[in-house]
Design a protein around this nucleic acid. Structure first.
Length: 442
DNA sequence: TCTGGGGTCCTAGGACCC
DNA sequence: TCTGGGGTCCTAGGACCC
């Protein structure tokens, strides 16, 4: 490919560089899940706290105090059980109903600071500040830093910069270095250089362990060196993804704000079982339940799936047991969205891969090739009663919305409680369940 | 006994079409 | 002797994110 631009093989970059320079903010909640739990347990405010993943499997959130104990992200909880007890570290099972609700409150507060908010994940958002006078940014950052904890109880860090990657990097510094007191703003060449020199390549947004290893192997260790490195080398070894990151670190915008959440292209539901399962019936119960949940999410975004994947595998951490893992693709004759058909095809897939006599630890269902309703093509030879099955799903959704999740489900999804989660330290749903709302005594 | 879950994007290669 | 080539779609695998 040959172009006239001096950007050679990156014409898309040439197109972007001449657009107006923006300003982005990244607001990130500190130890989000731990902060949510502490909100209703004020006595824990200065105590070490950790939150565990589904099934109480591994550590997924740590308070500052817990990090100081050397507890790592992703550590298996059972290895640390005694350590937690010995050091008086409070442990919570994850409570997504609570975190989701508090996340909505934080995002709502953030929308008061900018008309352009990209909710990037449950605990962070990008804000657009293009057109805001540069000298107002420090005051805005300070207001966000104070207002969010005041109004929601959740502490945050604030980063700002001319690209999303720089805002993210600024946020990283704001959070990691106490001297910045939760705020870092890149608004000059000096502040950009100072920031890049303090961040190692592995901590750049988009650089994972594999890319970091490649960079370190050629002597590139921090973000400043990466930004200055040869772009052809980067393009070749880190693909266009790496090249975009390098440009963004040089204040050249390659990624813009996404303020409407796009429809998902795949929807997956998968769980590890709290204890291993060996019967086909138990796996059928799990797969039917996962397929039902996935189908419900599919209908929520008004999508239709064209292809279902089903997978199962044994416990990979048990070298003493026979290992087996398999996934299968079930192409669908017509696109579909109703629970009854999706469960039927998912179970068909399971029967193809199920092997007798093994101890299964995990299963999952993935709906793939999702298209929007408006794109739907009717198949001339469609011999299903689409109308009937879709009406049943619609009725199930209505009943469940009114009387509670999973009040109505397919019989097969009730087969044995194969996949029930272990949640030994679950907090109440303080904000989303009437019975769990805290009572204040005056 | 016990090791999470849900996504996206990029690339290379094959199938298929005209 | 000479045995196309471009476009699109799909998949698998790898890398990344939270």
């Amino acid at each position: 490919m040959k172009t006239n631009s001096s950007f050679g093989v990156w014409p898309h970059v040439a197109a972007i560089i001449y657009s107006e320079g923006g300003v982005f903010g990244l607001v990130d909640c500190n130890s989000f899940y731990c902060s949510c739990e502490r909100l209703f347990r004020p006595e824990l405010r200065t105590r070490p706290v950790v939150v565990l993943s589904n099934n109480d499997g591994c550590v997924i959130s740590r308070s500052k105090e817990a990090k100081e104990f050397g507890i790592q992200m992703g550590e298996p909880a059972f290895l640390r059980k005694d350590f937690f007890a010995a050091n008086n570290i409070t442990v919570f099972s994850s409570n997504y109903a609570l975190y989701g609700d508090l996340s909505r409150r934080v995002m709502n507060e953030l929308s008061h600071f900018s008309p352009d908010v990209e909710v990037y994940s449950i605990d962070e958002a990008f804000l657009g500040f293009s057109g805001f006078p540069k000298d107002t940014l420090p005051a805005i950052a300070k207001r966000i830093y104070k207002k969010i904890p005041k109004n929601t109880g959740i502490p945050v860090s604030v980063g700002m910069g001319p690209t999303k990657t720089l805002a993210k990097l600024a946020n990283h510094l704001a959070k990691k270095k106490d001297e910045y007191r939760g705020i870092y703003i890149i608004d000059s060449e000096e502040s950009r250089e100072a920031a890049l020199k303090q961040v190692s390549v592995a901590d750049i947004w988009g650089i994972g362990p594999a890319y970091a290893r490649k960079l370190e192997a050629v002597g590139i260790t921090n973000a400043w060196e990466f930004a200055k490195a040869n772009k052809h080398w980067i393009r070749k070894h880190l693909t266009v993804v790496g090249a975009r990151i390098a440009y963004e670190l040089n204040s050249i915008e390659c990624s813009s704000l996404v303020t409407v959440d796009p429809a998902k292209k795949t929807i997956s539901v998968a769980r590890s079982f709290s204890s291993m399962k060996d019967t086909r019936e138990a796996l059928e119960g799990a797969v039917a339940t996962f397929a039902s949940a996935a189908a419900y999410n599919l209908r929520k975004q008004k999508g239709y799936t064209n292809l279902i994947r089903v997978f199962v595998h044994t416990n990979q951490h048990r070298s003493d047991l026979e290992q087996y893992g398999c996934n299968t693709i079930v192409p669908l004759p017509v696109q579909m969205q109703d629970t009854i058909k999706i469960v039927r095809y998912a179970l068909h897939g399971l029967r193809k891969i199920y092997k007798r006599g093994l101890q299964y630890k995990k299963a999952g269902v993935i709906l793939d090739q999702i298209r929007l309703e408006s794109d739907q093509q009717n198949d001339l030879f469609d011999n299903f009663n689409r109308d009937r099955d879709e009406k049943i799903s619609e009725a199930m959704d209505k009943i469940n919305a009114r009387y509670g999740k999973s009040k109505v489900k397919l019989a097969v999804a009730s087969k044995q409680n194969a996949w029930s989660l272990r949640q030994e330290n679950l907090s109440p749903r303080y904000t989303t369940r009437w019975q769990d709302i805290p009572i204040v005594l005056s």
